[in-house]
Lab assay of single mutants.
Amino acid sequence: MAAAAAAGAGPEMVRGQVFDVGPRYTNLSYIGEGAYGMVCSAYDNVNKVRVAIKKISPFEHQTYCQRTLREIKILLRFRHENIIGINDIIRAPTIEQMKDVYIVQDLMETDLYKLLKTQHLSNDHICYFLYQILRGLKYIHSANVLHRDLKPSNLLLNTTCDLKICDFGLARVADPDHDHTGFLTEYVATRWYRAPEIMLNSKGYTKSIDIWSVGCILAEMLSNRPIFPGKHYLDQLNHILGILGSPSQEDLNCIINLKARNYLLSLPHKNKVPWNRLFPNADSKALDLLDKMLTFNPHKRIEVEQALAHPYLEQYYDPSDEPIAEAPFKFDMELDDLPKEKLKELIFEETARFQPGYRS
């Protein structure tokens, strides 16, 4: 834990890192770190609560700039109880001085990944967590956004079992017609939660990839272990087919990539493993919904509104309290091709509203 900075004593240090967030945020305490930044909790002297502050230093890398800009653009436009918001952003007053960006968010005690390492969940908890994931996802999908990296560590939890989806750095506007060349190379989302079509096709992607990830998360809540822990690309596919069985001819016809289709045709026939054999203690309604989410063919996979209306979630289902976005989200430009200098300018502009004396 960093010592509390005395008023006016300059930035606090946390594990050798400068955290320049005073005077409003003090009493910093280390939480963890990701690929390009550290997260601390801090005391907000204005709202009198502890908050989470993520320090991001992305400006050396085009990919990190892209992810940072995506996350900020999306989260500043989203407003939903099951999606983490941005409360404040701290950065230098000029673009030349801006080396880091500090993002202030609600402090959540833990995440689903940490929880599943230590606790076996009751059916009631599984049901409530799944409902909140789908409630947040309904809003995301209504904005025409794909999260693309749903996994237990991106689901934040607090002691009252509130759940918030975080990390929109890989999110995209849904565009089933656009052929994202190089899709697989830039697709760094965790393999275990990846839909089979991501490994088999490169053309376009749809909201059904997020539903697949939610199915993987439900299976993990039922058993405290990942359902498809593939060691590499082909191993991942083999794990999936080992449980779902061989795809039907109709399902194979959806695979545009001939090499991928021929690979699947070359494999020995596998039978589907019954879900109640894998999860003998699970609620039968939970397994019915799991089956509809972990469907090989993305066109037959359940959609988020149908999933919310499934009998497993009937005690929570309330369409009048499951809000959607006001308007579909649009990125003005494809960020993939922009140089990091341009992305830095866009991050600077996007964060201006939090600067003292800002006038829109």
Rank of each mutant, 00 (worst) to 15 (best):
I217C: 04
L69H: 04
K330T: 00
I227E: 01
L267P: 06
L76R: 05
I347V: 00
E341P: 13
G34S: 02
C40P: 15
L338P: 02
I31P: 10
E81G: 13
S202R: 13
N271P: 02
D318Y: 13
V145H: 03
A195K: 04
L157G: 03
P176H: 07
D251Y: 15
W192K: 05
L294S: 09
Q355V: 13
F228T: 01
V304W: 13
L137Y: 07
F354L: 11
N297L: 04
I211N: 15
V18G: 15
F129E: 01
H310D: 01
A195T: 04
I140S: 09
L157H: 02
F329G: 00
T185F: 06
L157I: 08
S29F: 05
A6E: 13
K48C: 14
S122W: 08
A307M: 08
M199T: 00
E71N: 00
S122Y: 10
Q97C: 11
S208E: 03
S320Y: 14
R24L: 13
N201E: 12
K55F: 04
L265P: 07
P196N: 06
Q66M: 12
N281Y: 15
F279Y: 13
L278C: 04
K138P: 09
Q17D: 12
V273M: 12
S142F: 08
P229V: 09
G37R: 11
A189P: 09
Q17A: 11
I103G: 02
K48A: 14
N158S: 14
A286C: 01
L294P: 06
R67I: 15
P196R: 11
A143C: 09
I140P: 04
L156A: 14
C166K: 00
C127Q: 02
I347N: 13
N276A: 13
I56W: 13
C127R: 09
K99M: 15
G16Q: 11
R135V: 02
L121A: 02
L265M: 11
N154P: 07
K231I: 07
G357K: 05
N257Y: 15
I74C: 12
I74N: 15
K114R: 11
N238A: 09
E314I: 00
L294Q: 13
W212A: 10
V14N: 06
F354M: 10
W192C: 14
D175W: 04
V49F: 13
T68S: 15
D44A: 13
C65Y: 15
K117P: 03
K73G: 08
Y25F: 14
D288Y: 14
A174L: 02
A309M: 08
L112Q: 14
A7D: 12
L335E: 00
T63A: 12
Y43G: 11
P268H: 14
S208V: 10
E326C: 03
N158L: 10
L289C: 08
S223A: 14
R277D: 10
H61A: 08
V49R: 10
W212D: 08
T94G: 06
T26V: 07
A35R: 12
H61E: 01
L146K: 06
L234E: 04
F296D: 11
V46I: 13
L343K: 09
S41P: 00
D44M: 13
Y102H: 05
F78P: 02
A52K: 04
A52L: 02
F354H: 08
M98S: 12
L278H: 08
R191V: 04
L335D: 06
I83S: 02
L218W: 09
K342R: 06
S223W: 11
C40H: 10
P176F: 06
W275C: 15
L290G: 02
T94P: 13
I211R: 06
G182T: 09
Y64K: 15
M199V: 00
L237R: 04
L267W: 02
A6L: 13
L278R: 04
E341A: 05
Q17C: 06
G215W: 02
Y312T: 09
I86K: 00
K114G: 10
L28M: 14
Y64E: 15
P268D: 04
F59I: 15
G204C: 10
D321Q: 03
L278Q: 15
Y263D: 00
N224I: 15
Y205P: 01
K270S: 02
V14S: 03
V104S: 05
I165H: 09
G182F: 08
P229L: 06
R24G: 13
L290S: 07
Q97M: 09
N123R: 06
M38E: 08
D179I: 11
W212F: 11
Q119H: 13
K259R: 11
L294W: 07
L163G: 01
D175Y: 14
N27S: 00
